[in-house]
């Protein structure tokens, strides 16, 4: 990134404190994902029945769960897994859905038909149920959760990429590229793709939140990551039964963390759009 681009990014952040706030949160989450295991004050897997269901205290900031594990450590350590699944699925769908949408919008005809029908078929299912079915059929592994999350986001990426591409297919610079000796693929990848990149990056940021929620949701209903691995969805599921008996902290802290993470990525989307769009660069 050039100095001018950095200056622009700083400008956008200073202009819009909400983006700055979201960016701050994002940095916190990334740090937690990278350093979580070494920062955690307790072993996230070590149980101690003597300390079961302790409310939050100076020792255990988020309290302890039904077998005495430190909830704060578990929430912290889970960040890597939850963000990792979401990031991997978003990267996958960005590449696959983005390219499919580009090709559909650019070539039209049968390419468009195939891509469009595929997306329509996926959209015909309740998306979360579809994700459940995929994981149930393929097996309860992390790569399958990534795949399922990517598949249910596929239509969204296809639509955005296709719409943006159709708008630019007739643009003067596409003809200019042909005159300059580019073949179709060259025009598509070197000329059109960079133009729809900003909007796709915004899309990534927005669906990142949704992907986190989806992965956690799968674990929540028992179709994702398995206990005792620390993961926000499982922790909420495990804690849910204790809410009625008054031990609210078991579910609340992982749930709240999940919410803040989703919130952070949604806020970030708008800020990212301002930063990557060169027309807003002064």
């Amino acid at each position: 990134m050039s100095a001018a681009a950095l200056r622009h990014a700083r400008h956008v952040v200073s202009e819009n404190p909400v983006t700055g706030f979201a960016l701050g949160l994002f940095v916190l989450f990334v740090l937690a994902a990278l350093l979580g295991p070494s920062l955690a004050p307790h072993d996230p897997l070590a149980s101690n029945t003597m300390l079961a269901l302790q409310p939050p205290s100076a020792q255990h900031w988020f309290g302890t769960d039904q077998i005495g594990r430190d909830i704060f450590s578990r929430v912290l350590v889970a960040t890597r897994l939850d963000l990792g699944i979401a990031a991997a699925s978003v990267a996958l769908v960005f590449a696959a859905g983005g390219f499919a949408g580009l090709a559909a919008g650019f070539f039209g005809g049968w390419v468009d038909q195939i891509v469009g029908r595929t997306a329509d078929t996926i959209m015909a299912f309740p998306l979360f149920v579809l994700a459940m079915a995929i994981v149930a059929a393929l097996g309860n592994t992390v790569p399958n959760i990534v795949l399922a999350t990517a598949i249910i986001n596929f239509p969204l990426y296809v639509r955005v990429a296709r719409a943006e591409t159709t708008q630019r297919r007739e643009a003067g610079f596409v003809d200019a590229a042909r005159i300059a000796g580019h073949r179709d693929m060259g025009v598509l990848l070197l000329q059109v793709a960079p133009n729809i990149l900003p909007i796709m990056v915004v899309q990534m940021s927005l669906t990142m939140g949704y992907a986190i929620l989806n992965a956690a949701g799968l674990s929540f209903i028992g179709l994702g990551v398995r206990a005792p691995t620390p993961e926000w969805g499982i922790m909420v599921a495990e804690g849910a039964s204790f809410i009625v008996s008054g031990e609210w902290w078991v579910a609340l802290f992982p749930g709240a963390t999940l919410m803040v993470a989703v919130f952070c990525f949604n806020l970030l989307g708008d800020g990212v759009r301002d930063i990557v769009d060169p027309r807003r660069r002064t």
């Binding site: 003067g172 300059a180 580019h182 000329q191 133009n195």
Partner: peptide, 20 residues
């Protein structure tokens, strides 16, 4: 409209020279 908005002037002029 005929210059790719993601290209600098130099990129735009260079494109046909590189390709052709």
């Amino acid at each position: 409209e005929s210059i790719n908005p993601r290209f600098t002037a130099a990129d735009a002029i260079a494109d046909p020279l590189r390709q052709l």
